[in-house]
Design a protein around this nucleic acid. Structure first.
Lengths: 338, 338
DNA sequence: CTGATTGTGTAAACCGTTTAACATTCCGCA
DNA sequence: TGCGGAATGTTAAACGGTTTACACAATCAG
């Protein structure tokens, strides 16, 4: 592997000059630039990012901490972030916590070893990051979606409460009065906020209404089990809202398992919306998240912070965006005898 | 940030000793080890991986090149690789090509900047890696799935031809004689091999049979369009095989769009198999890939090569594994009048 | 014409580790 | 007693870049 010295020697300039043309600092003249470019091409020289990062104290690497990469929603966010990073000359290092705080801690440490300039985190719990990782331990970071309670960080997320209200209003208008909400766990701020939105909308609506909130964990099967049980109870809900895509899949399975049909027997509204869901029958009414918008907003905040000397800069921001609600086949008017 | 020097000073030993206890070289005595460990804890010292990598010429970083991370199959592979890597003290850097050679090239360069010790690549085309990247440009690498033709690399993949034959035999036994295979593009070795397996099985079976192979690109909509068109032609197939999960989703949509029912009007067999597919109605008969097995095999090969001085070591290996074929609801006996 | 400024380039220190190569101590054993 | 290893440490030179401080020439304002 040729080094910057080889390039300098071949171009008959100093390594400093090579560095300057490489980094386009503007301190290299036209003549030097030509010679260096030619030398680089001839040698097939490729700079060593580790060496550069060591001296410059900038890695141009941003860590992305996700609960799971096999969940299409997170995969989509990862994809958005990679594109955004490419545009601004950064690389993304993806790491997954598997919904486990211990592992989240471990993975974040791994990112820190590698000197990431910034972090984008979907915390796997709202009890804290990793366990016991504080803002002082981290480079500039933005928290996504969950964990909006950790106020000392910039945060980006859906307007969850509003999303909940929108979904609830839709179902109320269809005549539904008995609701069950299935979410992974109560300690998950995003889902809890969505549920709260639903509750508020029911309250605001006035009339009598039943609302049951059940938890099924982070797996499809868990959600299915929880909802199946709920559907067996008295006062069976006519409307089910699932607050994540995993819960949505579980809900579909539960409804199918009981041989209930949508939307005749029960209406379902899910969260998150992917292309492959179009193959589901019925095609489910869902509150999708604007992945591109969320990612851009987060990226913008992060880049801003990373380009500023630490400590300086504006105070923290908490931005939320509206979901895209699309009414489709899984939600319908409540049956007369429902 | 404290450095190894601060640790050394506090522990009253040399930096070399600190390094030795950090790397467990066995060259540190019990007494020193204790002092150093204490100092590390007190300072909250965290080693700088870039500096270590610069000096040691090992990054303990492996690049994973995927066509797309939003495709659940690749996401699953990524997840497997991350777990495997964690166990052996490596990190994985995931990068996506978006099925584009130009971008694949760019992303691989980015990985090389970061001094990855090895690469695991799902090439986006069998015409070559990146464009014009050769084995000499890369650290130890293993090629996955597609690109089995690039013989100078270790490769891991499904036994695609056998998988095709198995699928075909299943459908032949159900009485099907008219087949359409939908795949992304002919230049994709994995899909082409699967199609060839089907063709061979039909030939081996003897009797008259019709086989049409159509391409729909790498999108669900593309696959849907291609199959819809095919289903409108004369001699409509009674059996459809989709060679990737994207093609499978597209096929389902096409069949739904024409109001055909599975398996009464047409039988469908897909490739790849995920938990969320259980929510599809009918639940599709599919040839799943043993993701864990594939990942372990690739990882084993890669680690072996990485631990050897370059140039040495066994000759290249090409390993294939059998798929998991599961018969479900989307394939059935051909109709009498079919 | 002079002094300041700008443009271009270089030398050398430095970033935080690892790793030869070398030094010391301590034992066991002939 | 003395000698050969282990066992344990240390020193100092890399690793491949970036960046600061400085040098020199050419240009410019007055």
């Amino acid at each position: 592997m040729p080094t910057i010295k080889d390039v300098a020697a071949l171009a008959k300039v100093s390594t400093a000059t090579v560095s300057h043309v490489l980094n386009e600092t503007g301190r290299a003249g036209l003549h030097a630039k030509e010679r260096v470019t030619a030398a680089i091409a001839e040698l097939g020289y490729r700079p060593n990012a580790n060496a550069a990062s060591l001296r410059s104290r900038r890695s141009r690497l941003v860590g992305l901490v996700l609960p799971s990469i096999t969940n299409t929603f997170f995969a989509q966010m990862a994809s958005e972030f990679e594109s955004l990073a490419m545009e601004s000359g950064y690389d993304i290092a993806i790491v997954t916590s598997n919904e486990d705080q211990e592992r989240e801690h471990e993975r974040i440490q791994a990112l820190l070893f590698r000197q990431t300039d910034g972090l984008i985190i979907y915390p796997c719990s709202d009890k804290g990051i990793g366990n016991g990782i504080t803002k002082r331990d981290l480079p500039p970071s933005v928290l996504m979606d969950r964990g909006l309670t950790l106020a000392e960080f910039d945060t980006i997320g859906l307007n969850n409460e509003l999303a909940g209200r929108t979904v609830a209003r839709h179902l109320l208008e269809l005549g539904h009065r008995r609701f069950t909400v299935v979410l992974p766990e109560l300690a998950l701020a995003a889902s809890a906020d969505r549920a709260r939105g639903i509750e508020k909308e029911l309250k605001a609506h006035g009339g009598p209404a039943q609302l049951r909130v059940i938890t099924g964990g982070h797996t499809i099967e868990g959600s299915r089990g929880a909802l199946e049980q709920d559907l067996h109870r008295d006062e069976r809900p006519t409307a089910v809202v699932a607050t994540t895509n995993v819960a949505t899949l579980g809900a579909i399975k539960a409804i199918q398992a009981l041989q209930l049909s949508m939307p005749q027997d029960v209406s379902l509204v899910g969260f998150d919306d992917f292309e492959w869901m179009t193959a589901l029958r019925p095609y489910v009414t869902a509150m999708g998240q604007p992945t591109r918008t969320l990612a851009s907003a987060a990226w913008k905040l992060l880049v801003e912070r990373m380009s500023l000397p630490p400590g300086t800069g504006r105070k923290v921001q908490h931005l939320t965006f509206d979901g895209n609600f699309t009414i489709r086949e899984s939600s319908g008017r409540v049956r007369q005898n429902g």
